[in-house]
Design a protein around this nucleic acid. Structure first.
Lengths: 223, 223
DNA sequence: GTATGCGCTGGAACGACGTTCCAGACGCGT
DNA sequence: ACGCGTCTGGAACGTCGTTCCAGCGCATAC
């Protein structure tokens, strides 16, 4: 016999903004940025492109919502019982890992219309800057510097994650870049050549956190 | 009488990669990123879209070449007789001003295929890091941190420059953002609200350079 | 039980884009 | 005069974001 109320899968559960956004995230993760198409999205949701526009105003909003969904869960940690330095490191690590898992996020972090995901990070960073007892006049500069650095690494990682795409693993990629750097013109690129050797054994995430520490020590050295 | 050699304007001077790239830069500057179209470019060059493909492989290369053209002239300074700090500041200021004048550059700095414009900046920054007598093992981290920060600010400025577009001047825009920040939920955004008042009288470029100094003092504090 | 209205659907269609194709114009060497 | 490689530019292809709209199902009113 049929269920008492309405049949649970009329054609499936109905469309909704959340279902659309989460399908968009999956699509971005699996086929990359260029794979997010209203047609592909419609197919994955077993509907037509027109239906999506009832829940979402356009592609820009969709990308913004997808970015926000990822970032929001990434920084949803608790930093009550930690030193400000540790809290900032944890926050930064959260953003880094999110972008590592979803490279497309890096590209769209700064593009967001109301910048709402970045504003959330800014707020969280800023509170820890206050906790560091940075003078009021320097708080904005300190928080902005940390935010911009995080954003910059995000962009770089997104770019790398985009060019590396296939099965290539990280060390293989680093070896290739190191080899490329080692063959640069010695007159034009002496520094790059000199650090090329450090590339293969370098750890993106550790390097990123070292940069955070660098900025943190710059912030605290000032007061 | 006609000129002795060939008539100087057969239809005009012939197409060339340089002419295409510089027309692309003009188009990007005047109509923005979405205005760079092969059709618009062809019209501006009084030709058809097909002809452009003889000199350029596609849109990605075109954007990369345009970005490189702007960045290369932006960092073409001489830093022979300056302290390392001053040289780094000058370099950073060059990139900042270039992005201020051409906001679209910020978006594509990290996207470049061989990353060649960023590699140039990395090299220049790295040499000054060496001049700061940073220990060899820390040079890569220091240069990367500076580069990522510059890249991050570039991305942010590009995003702002894109949303501000029309005749709105900077102070007007900052006032609007400050007002928006001041109306945020006090429980969720205490820090952002507390610094909102500093926004209207804040100078993007000065703030950017203050961030550079922050990182520089973090670098030198370590040794 | 039938009619009415609305939230929501999804397929068709539009215009613009990046890109490819190719017939032919041009200039140079023979 | 001729042929050939370089370079041109307009037509055409496929795909994209987006708009449009005929109609579905369900709740409510009669």
């Amino acid at each position: 016999m049929a269920t008492r109320t309405r049949r649970p899968d009329r054609r499936q559960e109905p469309l909704s903004r959340e279902r659309i956004v989460s399908a968009a995230v999956e699509l971005l993760d699996t086929v990359g940025e260029s794979g997010l198409t209203f047609r592909a999205l419609a197919e994955r949701l077993a509907t037509g492109p027109g239906a999506i526009y009832w829940h979402v105003t356009g592609k820009a909003e969709l990308l913004g919502a997808a970015t926000e969904a990822v970032v929001t869960t990434a920084i949803a940690g608790d930093d009550a019982d930690a030193t400000p330095q540790e809290a900032i490191r944890a926050l930064a690590r959260g953003v880094f890992d999110a972008i590592d898992a979803h490279p497309w996020v890096g590209t769209h972090l700064a593009h967001a219309p109301g910048q709402s995901p970045m504003l959330r990070v800014f707020e969280r960073v800023g509170r820890q800057v206050q906790a560091l007892r940075v003078p009021e006049a320097a708080q904005f500069t300190a928080a902005s510097a940390l935010l911009s650095y995080i954003l910059g690494v995000a962009g770089q990682n997104a770019a790398n994650g985009r060019t590396v795409r296939p099965g290539t693993d990280r060390t293989e990629f680093l070896d290739a870049v190191a080899a490329q750097w080692a063959e640069l013109d010695p007159d034009q690129y002496p520094f790059t050549r000199s650090v090329a050797g450090q590339l293969p054994e370098h750890d993106d995430r550790a390097e990123f956190l070292a940069g955070i520490d660098l900025i943190l020590s710059g912030i605290t050295a000032r007061q």
